[in-house]
């Protein structure tokens, strides 16, 4: 198991954002986390990357407990994420964004940076090369010198993925990567995520685009009001009574809203 979520709960001032949720992700899987808005999906991401600590339960990554570890340490261990509401370093070029992503896989400090030691120079060249490779992978190489804020929306989403990839994650967390993308962009996103999987990286994805989720994921967990509603393969989920009800109920709400 790459990731083991064990009986995790999270309360915010008495409100249960997550209640006793468990699931585990196997090496090399693409795992989906779906559910209506407010079901606790992003909260789960925030717990895994320890932006919040769980109220109870354990998160085990690579057979080590990572609960309570500092966010940057978790990245070092090999988990990296993207954000639902894109959080790029907007005033940096695309290339530099990705190079920052490689922070945890490089080590130059003040001294070696200022005096440009041999090791530092080699490291910079490597980082640069790696960043360019990743930009090529997500199809942004020609925009490497563009400031992140000047990129189109879909490009920003892909840049965020490249930035996360630069940390050599074993587990990549994607928070609604297809949000705001058109059909063509979504298709190339599908290819991209499949490519990432083929590199041996495990992917945990939150997504509202159901056709994409069903096509992409090996297994899925459905959350509803902070609780696990169902788990299974896409086919199992699509035929699950409880899931259908939760979604249909929600959809009516959407329409009336």
């Amino acid at each position: 198991m790459v990731l083991d979520i064990k009986n995790v709960s999270k309360n915010f001032g008495g409100i249960h954002a997550l209640k006793n949720v468990s699931f585990s992700i196997k090496q090399g899987e693409i795992y989906g986390l779906i559910g209506p808005n407010g079901a606790g999906k992003t909260t789960m991401f925030n717990l895994i990357t320890n932006i919040f600590e769980p109220s109870s339960g354990d998160i085990i990554f690579d057979s080590q407990t990572i609960t309570g570890l500092k966010s940057h340490k978790i990245t070092e261990k090999g988990i990296c994420r993207t954000y639902q509401n894109i959080r790029l370093f907007s005033q940096m070029t695309a290339l530099k964004n990705v190079m920052v992503g490689g922070h945890s896989r490089s080590s130059s400090g003040v001294f070696s940076s200022v005096f440009r030691t041999k090791k530092q120079r080699e490291e910079e060249i490597q980082l640069n090369q790696k960043a360019e490779d990743l930009l090529e992978l997500v199809g942004l190489l020609e925009h490497k010198d563009t400031l992140a804020e000047n990129l189109a929306y879909g490009q920003q989403r892909r840049l965020e993925i490249a930035r996360a990839m630069a940390s050599n994650p074993k587990l990549l967390l994607l928070d609604e990567p297809a949000a705001g993308m058109n059909e063509k962009e979504t298709d190339s996103l599908y290819d991209l995520i499949k490519m990432i999987q083929s590199k041996g990286i495990t992917v945990l994805i939150i997504e509202h685009d159901m056709p994409l989720v069903m096509k992409l994921c090996d297994r899925i967990t459905v959350l509803n009001f902070g609780e696990k509603l169902a788990e299974g393969t896409p086919t199992e989920i699509q035929n699950n009574e409880a899931v259908i009800e939760a979604y249909l109920g929600k959809e009516e709400e959407y329409e009336s809203a």
């Binding site: 954000y83 907007s90 530099k96 922070h103 945890s104």
Partner: peptide, 18 residues
Amino acid sequence: RSFSSIQMDEKAAESMGI
């Protein structure tokens, strides 16, 4: 780069391992 990433978005910088 770490300095400027912290300046631009502290949370994102931290989740990049900084």
